[in-house]
Computed example of a mutant assay.
Amino acid sequence: MKIAFIINDIKTEKKGYTTVDLALTAHRMGHEIYVIGAGELAYASDGFMTARAYIVQETKYKSAENFLKALQKSDPVTINAKDLDVLFIRNDPSDDMNDRTWAQNSPYVFGQIAMRNGVLVLNHPVTLPNSINKMYFQHFPEIIRPKTIITRDVREIEDFFKEQKSRMILKPLQGSGGKNVFLIEEKTKKNLKQIIEAISRDGYIIAQEYLPKAVDGDTRMFLMNGEPLVVNGKYAAIRRVNNNGDIRSNIHAGGHPEKAKVDDDMLRLADALRPKLIQDGMFLIGIDIVGDKLMEVNVFSPGTLNIMSKTYGVDFSKAVIQSIERKIRYKEIYGPDVNNATLAVL
């Protein structure tokens, strides 16, 4: 199987990223892997997607660090969609929202071309643009989401603050890793207008109900093919806790991972997401849960899967690659009779 991973930029990729782990796992399983930066995609005159891609030799790499170094030192080669079986879109659009806005949508735009060229594209590139920011979150059942408004109007946010009894969360509509997330309380409301001004520089603002259970951290869970990812009876789920008094539990924001206890409430919540995820062809996503509420849906580049594998002693990345192998077998059997969105979640 020839599989390409789209990232933001090979120079900024890090050894601890889930995409690196997925690519290394695919390489160890005998597949040909290519890594493509969001700015290295192109369209050829014959109608095919092309790209400058980074590759590695058939060496057995002992660590993600050595594997990534080999990728970064390699001379990029030009590949054509004809050379690929799978294109896995794993860039984070929010990383390019300030300096490279043109790179935010290029992966799914070129992904749609690759799909027409006969390549299996994950996640489904036609619906992927709908999830480029946190507005996608609002398409899921209201009963499993915190109360939320999305606006740039200061007065609307102030009114919502009063409705929430002077406690709410503010964050940007587009972003990841816990960037610019604020807890607004009675004692901090004097800074509300300045915080709104700072967040609104990058666009719309999400004002959200504060969930008291957030002080205990959140749970990141992976869903694959619309269902919780499970290997040997262990869920790909991890509890993220920040003991520094920070409301953010993201690993990038100082949170540390612990084993998660996946309960019936979490499973019911995950099951409620399934119809929409199946409809949209969302192969692999990460969801963040606080109590019995869904806090976030990460469709583009959910992380911590490699941390989960180490925590539980099972290989979740291998299960992801095996699922992609199965999709390719279906594609070989059915050809164009089964579309990309359907294959993505089989």
Rank of each mutant, 00 (worst) to 15 (best):
F5S: 01
N8H: 11
D9H: 15
I10V: 13
K11Y: 14
K11H: 15
K15D: 12
K15H: 15
V20M: 02
D21R: 09
M29E: 07
G30P: 07
H31M: 06
I33G: 01
Y34N: 00
I36R: 02
G39Q: 05
L41W: 03
M49D: 02
R52Y: 07
Y54L: 00
Y54F: 12
I55M: 08
V56H: 05
K60E: 10
F67D: 09
F67C: 08
L68K: 07
Q72N: 11
D75K: 15
I79R: 06
I79F: 12
A81I: 02
D83M: 02
D83A: 01
P93I: 01
P93V: 01
T101L: 05
T101A: 04
A103E: 07
V109Y: 14
F110E: 05
G111C: 04
I113Y: 05
V119C: 04
L120V: 02
N123C: 01
N123R: 01
T127Y: 09
I132C: 04
K134I: 00
M135L: 15
M135S: 11
F137L: 13
F137C: 02
H139K: 13
I143E: 15
I144W: 12
R145W: 07
I150Y: 14
T151A: 10
R152Q: 15
D153G: 06
D153Q: 11
V154M: 06
R155H: 11
R155W: 12
F160S: 05
F161D: 03
Q164G: 01
S166P: 06
R167A: 09
R167K: 14
I169V: 14
K171C: 04
P172N: 06
L173P: 05
Q174R: 15
G175F: 07
S176I: 09
G177W: 06
L183F: 13
E185R: 14
K189A: 06
K189E: 10
K190R: 13
L192W: 03
K193F: 08
E197N: 14
A198C: 00
R201P: 00
G203C: 03
G203P: 11
I206Y: 06
A207V: 04
A207K: 03
L211D: 06
K213P: 09
A214G: 10
R220F: 14
F222Y: 15
F222V: 00
M224P: 15
N225K: 13
N225H: 13
N225I: 04
E227D: 12
E227R: 15
P228A: 07
P228C: 09
N232F: 07
I238S: 08
R239Q: 11
G245R: 05
D246S: 14
I247Y: 12
H252P: 00
A253L: 04
P257W: 08
P257D: 01
K259H: 07
K259C: 02
A260Q: 07
K261F: 10
D264I: 08
M266T: 04
M266A: 08
L267E: 08
R268S: 10
A270M: 05
A272M: 11
L273Y: 08
R274C: 03
K276N: 11
Q279Y: 15
G281V: 12
G291A: 10
D292K: 12
L294I: 09
V297F: 05
V297C: 04
V297H: 06
N298I: 05
N306R: 12
K310F: 01
T311H: 08
Y312W: 03
Y312K: 06
Y312N: 01
D315K: 09
F316N: 03
I321E: 04
E325D: 15
I328H: 07
R329M: 05
K331D: 04
P336I: 02
V338E: 10
N340W: 11
L346E: 12
